[in-house]
Nucleic acid binder design. Structure first.
Length: 511
DNA sequence: GCGATCAGAT
DNA sequence: CACATCTGATCGC
């Protein structure tokens, strides 16, 4: 394999240029990039004649940005005119299909009829949003219950029949392909994406890295150094595919200038800024929480972002939540009050894999206590390579009142069982469940309205510690950037949502 | 048998 | 509600 390796860091030695030497199993002809054929017009959809899948029967549907753009239902490569497509395929070198080489029969011919556009129907052969169906993350047991497992005998319903169809490899949605480049972002679940010479990973969450495993062989993976370490140690991806890019550093990859910027999401998460040779700039936010600080970033100040690929998780005015700092102060305050009242309290913070560490870090700092985590979470936190975490960890749960547990362990019954294992020292539990949003529109910014759930000596607080932008943060960010067009990447699974989001965008950018 | 991926649950 | 994951089932190698 001849991809840049982690052992030979990119850029410096080659005057800021990364090369993919054509290896024997992965050849890309730079001069014939198929994504390159796509030009977005000023409404944001590909400007060439599109094969419209199902034109409005009576023609009455209003032609709007959203309607036209999403109706195209096509990924970039499928938008090529047949002439050009066949012309180019005569010259270009394709990656050999390793499955075929090994005598297996997985073939792109079996791909879904949906060509990677947005799709309204969730189900067979459809592409819904980012958030559906990703591989099981089984790297370690940080998410496994540590206490007695509460029985849940309710079996999940039987699997829907596939009507005898072959299992299908979905094709990569257009909004994961960067036009004019051979790059994709967070597109690992689609096997080998045709023409893709570089696969970017915005951050280490399962719904974005889905498809990555030790068998990955489709091309180099560009990501932040931390994300790269996690990909290697948790998913066992061959390190020769992992190409770490430092934050705030411009790299030239296949002739495109690429810069990663801190996304204010989980550790290692990046905004990805692309600058094409023609001067066009794209910003892919991955998942992010917009903040004022980002508005000082030199790239955003000095260069207009033409296309913004936007994390629209909370793109609705009903999503209001406090700043991270407000939530952290609140959590510390509740903890202090609770400990005053019940000195023998075990404080538990729920967590998934990566992200929301600040909640327990804040308690640890404020109270001067260590953080107990199990071995696999410890391994992850040590990979952050940050003394803030490593110096505070504590293996023995008896030695600190602050424990981190998998989110699934925060049920009252599970916590009761957990408390029993520490009954010599603790007599009650105070648990925090950091969630994206508080579920109640009424709470909004007002933390004082949060009501704990209590049962005997167990008390649980759901706190709105969000690592996605609120509606107003999103609006402020967009109004600051003033991109020519915005392509939402979340909640795109239904047309009404998309239409609604586009109308917010229009509203924000008018005048 | 095992890894990948689905629907549904949490 | 949403997030981000877990669970059990099933498929295909």
């Amino acid at each position: 394999m001849s991809f840049p390796t982690a052992a030979s860091p990119p850029a410096a030695s080659e005057a800021g240029t990364l090369h993919h030497d054509d290896g024997d199993s992965y050849n890309v002809n730079d001069d014939d990039a198929s994504f390159d054929a796509i030009r977005l017009d000023d409404e944001g959809f590909p400007s060439q004649q599109l094969p419209i899948e199902s034109p409005s029967p009576n023609g009455s549907e209003k032609s709007s940005f959203a309607a036209d753009f999403y109706r195209c239902g096509s990924d970039c490569s499928s938008l090529l005119t047949p002439e050009r497509d066949s012309l180019s395929s005569g010259k270009k070198l394709k990656q050999a299909n390793l499955f075929q080489i090994w005598g297996f029969k997985r073939n792109v011919e079996f791909e879904s009829p949906n060509q990677g556009g947005y799709c309204d129907v969730v189900g067979e052969g459809s592409v819904s949003s980012e958030k559906k169906s990703v591989k099981r993350g089984n790297w370690g047991s940080i998410l496994r219950d540590t206490g007695k497992v509460v029985e849940n005998s309710k079996s999940t319903g039987k699997r829907k029949s596939f009507h005898g169809e072959k299992r299908v490899t979905r094709s990569c949605p257009f909004y994961k392909k960067m036009p004019g480049t051979n790059f994709t972002v967070d597109a690992f679940r689609y096997g080998c994406v045709e023409e893709c010479s570089a696969y970017f990973l915005s951050h280490f969450h399962a719904d974005h890295y889905g498809g990555l495993s030790k068998k990955w062989s489709h091309g180099p993976i560009y990501c932040s150094p931390l994300t790269g370490r996690l990909v290697q140690m948790c998913l066992y991806v061959n390190p020769s595919y992992i190409c770490p890019l430092e934050f705030d550093t411009e790299y030239v990859i296949d002739g495109i200038k690429v810069t990663l910027i801190d996304a204010n999401h989980c550790p290692g998460a990046a905004l990805i800024h692309f600058e094409l040779p023609n001067g066009q700039c794209y910003l892919h936010t991955g998942d992010f929480r917009a903040c004022k600080l980002m508005q000082d970033y030199h790239l955003f100040v000095n260069k207009r972002v033409n296309v913004l690929y936007l994390d629209t998780t909370y793109c609705n005015p009903k999503y209001k939540f406090p700043s991270k700092d407000d939530v952290l102060n609140y959590v510390v305050k509740i903890t202090n009050n609770h400990l005053k009242k019940y000195p023998r309290t075990l404080v538990v913070v729920g967590a998934y894999s990566i992200g929301k560490e600040c909640v327990y870090l804040a308690i640890s700092k404020a109270l001067g206590v260590k953080i107990h985590v199990n071995a696999s979470r410890r391994r992850i936190l040590l990979a952050y390579d940050c003394p803030d975490y490593s110096d505070r960890l504590c293996t023995n749960g008896n030695n600190t009142l602050l424990h981190v547990l998998p989110m699934s362990s925060l049920r009252i019954e599970t916590l009761k069982e957990y408390l029993k294992t520490y009954k010599e020292q603790f007599t009650s539990v105070l648990a925090f469940r950091p969630t994206g949003w508080t579920f109640s529109e009424k709470i909004g910014n007002d933390l004082a309205l949060i009501k704990p759930v209590s049962n005997g000596n167990i008390t649980t607080y759901g706190v709105p510690y969000s690592e996605h932008s609120s509606f107003t943060e999103l609006r402020d960010f967009v109004q600051f950037l003033r991109p020519d067009k915005i392509i939402p990447t979340v909640n795109v699974g239904n047309a009404a949502n998309r239409e609604k989001m586009q109308s917010y965008f229009r509203d924000w950018l008018k005048g």
